[in-house]
């Protein structure tokens, strides 16, 4: 049973505050993804959990044990680095067995563990190669293998796929998902890629500037973002945010607008209609054809631009007038602080 609990975690580097009070509960066997823009403190938070960095304030509990002062190696965690951090002078076998060797595990037991992990990751034929003789995807697998052999209670992944090309990334993503299913170990995974977060996570933690913006399942974050930041970070292309006055033009609303200041609607929820049918009108400035759908850039009369996904055959021409409509259910309202809000019914 390995849950992870973060209580009021803070981290300063000198006078720079990088993590500003993070509280988080991670349940046993959960796949949790930290997502956020580059530089928001994801790696730092992961390194704090691993013990590679020392927390400035707060408590970390792993498996109900307070580990603030526990050495990294004694925390029962294994980490996969973005750079893979494979030792270049050791073979795949020795890279994977390194941790077991320094922990004085007998050689035969060690070989058994390495062979086991190699079989799991289809590395059997590569055991005697050096890291420089492997492709990016193979190195990635060795890095994961090295984490597996120690049978850790918690896996930590720091942007493990960011050095791979797009196709391999999708493939490795599914392998990591399969690995989690098989091992059922708690996994904490850092990425700046919201698609990776959505596809892998049981629970997503959205970070910005060292603070948690929202925690929830992928569906919760998509359907009920807590604020504009999360609303725009999750989902691609990102959500349109317009002044609240635009809302009644998109859909019939049963309520007054206060206290909403702005309204968000995802590009995939905007319906393109003839100029007369929708009340919100705009002019197409750019049509990006991607095959399955077309992404329309629409300039509204008030000067805002919004994106709409259009999935019908006949394409509106650039410069054409169109109308936009949406379902009232698909509108998100935000107050003057950017926080999600409900309309007061009258």
């Amino acid at each position: 049973m390995t849950n992870v609990l973060l209580k009021g975690i803070e981290k300063r580097f000198g006078s720079v505050e990088v993590i500003r009070g993070v509280d988080l509960q991670i349940d046993d066997g959960e796949f949790v993804v930290f997502v956020g823009p580059s530089g928001c403190g994801k790696s730092t938070l992961l390194r704090l959990i691993s013990g590679l960095e020392h927390i400035s304030a707060g408590d970390i509990l792993i498996g109900d044990r307070l580990v603030n002062e526990v050495q990294p190696a004694q925390r029962g965690v294994a980490m996969v680095f973005q750079s893979y951090a494979l030792y270049p002078h050791l073979t795949v076998r020795d890279n994977m067995g390194f941790g077991l060797k320094v922990r004085k595990m007998p050689a035969d037991e060690r070989q058994k563990r390495v062979a086991e992990a190699a079989a799991t990751l289809k590395l059997d034929t590569l055991l005697d190669r050096y890291p420089r003789e492997l492709s990016g995807g193979q190195r990635q697998r060795v890095a994961i293998g090295r984490a597996i052999v120690g049978h850790p209670d918690v896996f930590l992944f720091d942007e493990p796929l960011s050095n791979l090309d797009a196709e391999l990334r999708v493939h490795m993503r599914s392998e990591i998902a399969a690995l989690h299913k098989r091992l059922a170990t708690t996994m904490i995974y850092v990425t700046h890629d919201q698609i990776e977060a959505m596809t892998l996570a049981d629970k997503i933690v959205v970070l910005r500037d060292g603070r948690v913006e929202q925690v929830g399942s992928p569906r919760t974050l998509y359907e009920n973002p807590a604020n504009i930041f999360v609303a725009q970070f999750i989902g691609s292309p990102k959500m349109n945010v317009l002044p609240a006055d635009a809302a009644p033009l998109l859909a019939a609303l049963p309520a007054t607008l206060s206290p909403a200041e702005s309204v968000g609607v995802r590009p995939e929820h905007l319906m393109v209609v003839k100029p007369g049918e929708g009340i919100l009108r705009g002019k197409v400035t750019l049509a990006e054809y991607t095959g399955a759908v077309t992404l329309l850039h629409v300039a509204l009369a008030d000067g805002h631009t919004c994106l709409a996904i259009y999935d019908k055959q006949e394409m509106p021409e650039v410069g054409a007038e169109i109308g936009l409509k949406a379902d009232a259910r698909d509108l998100h309202f935000f107050d003057s602080h950017g926080q999600a809000t409900k309309l007061r019914s009258n």
Partner: peptide, 27 residues
């Protein structure tokens, strides 16, 4: 020498001497 080598070795339980002997010195 990338700092991650040392971090990885530390996480795997290597002592400072082991990190030097098994990683830094060969490199």
């Amino acid at each position: 020498i990338p700092r991650d080598y040392e971090a990885a070795a530390r996480l795997e339980g290597a002592s400072r001497w082991q990190i030097f002997r098994m990683i830094i010195w060969p490199l």
